[in-house]
């Protein structure tokens, strides 16, 4: 089955990103396809490469990046939600005249249309939120 995943909460404050990650791993292990993972609301904060959690804690952003690299996942951060919360890739930072970017490997910034397209193209769309 082809899935689109929506992650609506940031890392650590809520468990939704952890649950989504575990769902994606399990779905891939069963041979399903992940069409896209779309990060919205505070979920965009899963895509910062500047998080430094304690060493004995899980590293969610890194786990997403590694999973994306291993399975060619399309991790999309909503641009409107990202702009509000200071999540930037290099080109967006340049466009906004900002001195730095913070997006992690494997994530890309794009529009809400990517979520709707995911809903249209996938057999199931699953929301992981509060």
């Amino acid at each position: 089955m082809k899935y689109t995943i929506m992650v609506n909460e940031g890392p650590y404050q809520h468990q939704s990103s952890d649950t989504a990650l575990q769902f994606v791993r399990a779905a891939l292990a069963k041979g399903h396809t992940i069409f896209r993972v779309f990060f919205y609301h505070d979920g965009v904060n899963n895509g910062t490469r500047l998080a430094v959690p304690p060493k004995d804690d899980r590293m969610l952003q890194k786990e997403w990046s590694e999973l994306a690299e291993k399975h060619g996942l399309d991790l999309v951060i909503c641009i409107a939600a990202a702009q509000r919360r200071g999540l930037m890739d290099a080109s967006e930072a340049k466009r906004q005249g900002l001195s730095a970017d913070n997006i992690a490997a494997g994530f890309r910034i794009s529009g809400l249309g990517q979520l709707i397209e995911g809903g249209i193209e996938s057999d199931r769309t699953i929301v992981f939120g509060d």
């Binding site: 919205y40 609301h41 529009g111 809400l112 249309g113 979520l115 709707i116």
Partner: peptide, 19 residues
């Protein structure tokens, strides 16, 4: 919380997809 406002933003974009 921002859920309602950002939900409405999704709805307005979604309207363009003729679903």
């Amino acid at each position: 919380t921002v859920y309602a406002l950002e939900s409405l933003e999704v709805v307005l974009i979604a309207a363009a997809f003729e679903q």
